[in-house]
Design a protein around this nucleic acid. Structure first.
Lengths: 335, 335
DNA sequence: ACATCATATCGAACCGGTTCGGTAAATGAT
DNA sequence: ATCATTTACCGAACCGGTTCGATATGATGT
């Protein structure tokens, strides 16, 4: 492996001059610069990113931490961030927390130890203490999807109450009153907001909510399945179900199929977020989708800006809230 | 940040002794070791992985490079590798090549510059020259899914010819003769093998193959969609279609739905590999699935073994071929 | 009691860069 | 012609570890 010293020797300059030539070429004499570049060419010199990181105290890696890469929603965001990062010379280190707050925290500390330049985080930790942890983190963090109150970080997300408000209004308009709601993990930002969107809309329409129809599916397939099963085995089962995310929504559909209910004839269904092959699923599910690509784009821009310059780093944290889009399917029918 | 020197000072020993205590504790006196550990505790010292990497010439990062993280198949493998890597103190750096060979190569070189400990690779590059590139790579590589002939690396994959052999025999038994085959990118290992499995089985059964029914869908959704469209708009369309992977298989189903064909009544369908929500897709698709988890497990074990010891590193490359499993759905019918 | 050997610890070189203070030459001001 | 300032480059310290040869001490063999 050729080092900066080899280049310096060949070009007949000191190593500090080579370093200078690499980092701020204009501060080096034109002719000297030429010789150095020539030497670099002929030796095939590649800068060692590890040594550079050690010396600079900062690497050119960006971390991406989320709960579930398998979920298309996070996958799309990841793709977009990765794309932009590569454009700016950054490499993306991806880590999957599996939704476990303790693991997530360990991952973040590990990333920090790697002197990572910045982190895009869909947080799963919660609470005062976690917010403090995030706030005091020295590495720039841009949070997406999940907002942690008190973390005082940039946040990119969707209008979550609106997602379920739209779905609930849609079902109310179709005449549904007994609506089951499979919520996400209570305490999680999006889960609480989506639940609130549902509750408020129901209350706003003067419809009583049967509390036993509001269950917690934890945003997971298995959780959604279990809770949908509970809802649908009741004698007084709901006429419609809302899944607070794609996993729980589809899990509900699966339960309907397993139990021989037809959707939407027997039970209507609506959910938040899309999945990759939704258009070959029968019936086409009515949903509210977030613009994952746009979210990723914003998150990446924000993070790169913070990393790039001291001014960017000093800017006050800002929230970016996108409006989700309603996609009508055939999984809901008029009562 | 506290460094090893702080610990040394506090424990009243030299920094080399601290390093020794950390790396081979048994070579340090019991009492000294105690003092050092105590000093580490009280200072909250964490070793700096970057400095360690620079000094050692090797990091504790493992790279995972594949074409498409969104595809559940790769996602499952990733999860398994990540899991095992974390258990052994390694961090997984994930990179998505989007199936582009040039990008993949750049990623690999970049990972190597990071002095990564090892790489799990689902290769998309092909050809003699690429094989040489992989063979001469200094970092341990374990390839999975896609085998590159001549790379002389460990390989973990499935019996690919068997995947399509099983599906083809199944369709032949049901009386199908005009079978459309949507292949993967020609030149890609699994694609070629799966195509061969189809061709050989047809030939073995004495059935003539209409070459125009064999199309290249490139393993992608869009490619599969376009080719399925071509197959299904023909006057003499096939009675059954095989998708060489999950993307192209589902794309074919989508085309059928768009064109108003019913599956399996009008056209039968079978494919290789599963997708996350296949059990809510109507009809349940007949498929041959690989054991992704097992593949990931084997790949991780192999890679960790190579990384761990010089003996492991020296072991001759070995192939691990798993047998795929047939899952009968309702997407194929007797003619 | 003396040579031999293992054990515990240390000092210094090294990994490959960055950065800052300093010097010598060139440029500009007066 | 003299002094001030800029420009181009260098030397050395530093980032935070690892590793190896050297040294001092104590144990073993005879």
């Amino acid at each position: 492996m050729t080092t900066i010293r080899d280049v310096a020797r060949l070009a007949g300059v000191s190593i500090s001059t080579v370093s200078l030539a690499l980092n701020s070429p204009k501060r080096v004499g034109a002719e000297t610069l030429d010789r150095i570049l020539q030497a670099i060419k002929s030796t095939g010199y590649r800068i060692d990113p590890v040594a550079q990181t050690l010396a600079r105290g900062r690497s050119s890696l960006i971390g991406f931490v989320s709960a579930n890469l398998g979920n298309m929603f996070f996958g799309d965001i990841r793709r977009e961030i990765e794309h932009q990062a590569l454009d700016h010379g950054y490499f993306v280190l991806i880590a999957d927390s599996s939704g476990r707050a303790d693991l997530e925290r360990a991952l973040l500390e590990r990333l920090e130890a790697q002197k990572i330049a910045g982190i895009a985080l869909a947080a799963n930790g919660r609470g005062e203490e976690y917010a403090t942890f995030l706030r005091d983190f020295k590495t720039p963090i841009v949070m997406f999807d999940q907002k942690v109150e008190g973390a005082e970080r940039d946040f990119v997300g969707s209008d979550n109450p609106l997602t379920t408000t739209i779905l609930t209004e849609h079902l109310l308009q179709l005449g549904h009153r007994r609506i089951g709601f499979i919520s996400g993990p209570s305490g999680l930002h999006t889960a609480d907001e989506r639940l609130k969107g549902f509750m408020d809309t129901m209350a706003g329409a003067g419809v009583d909510i049967d509390p036993s129809l509001v269950v917690e599916g934890g945003y997971t397939r298995t959780g959604g399945h279990a809770q949908a099963m509970r809802l649908l085995t009741r004698r007084d089962r709901p006429t419609a179900i809302i899944g607070a995310n794609n996993m729980t929504g589809l899990a509900a559909l699966q339960v309907m199929q397993e139990m021989g209910f037809r959707c939407p004839d027997d039970v209507s269904l609506a959910m938040v977020d899309d999945v990759p092959w939704s258009n070959v699923i029968t019936p086409r599910i009515t949903m509210v989708v977030q613009d994952a690509q746009k979210l990723g784009e914003l998150a990446a821009q924000r993070l790169l800006a913070r990393i790039a310059s001291p001014e960017g780093a000093a800017a006050p944290p800002q929230d970016f809230i996108l409006t989700p889009r309603f996609v009508r399917g055939e999984s809901t029918r008029r009562l």
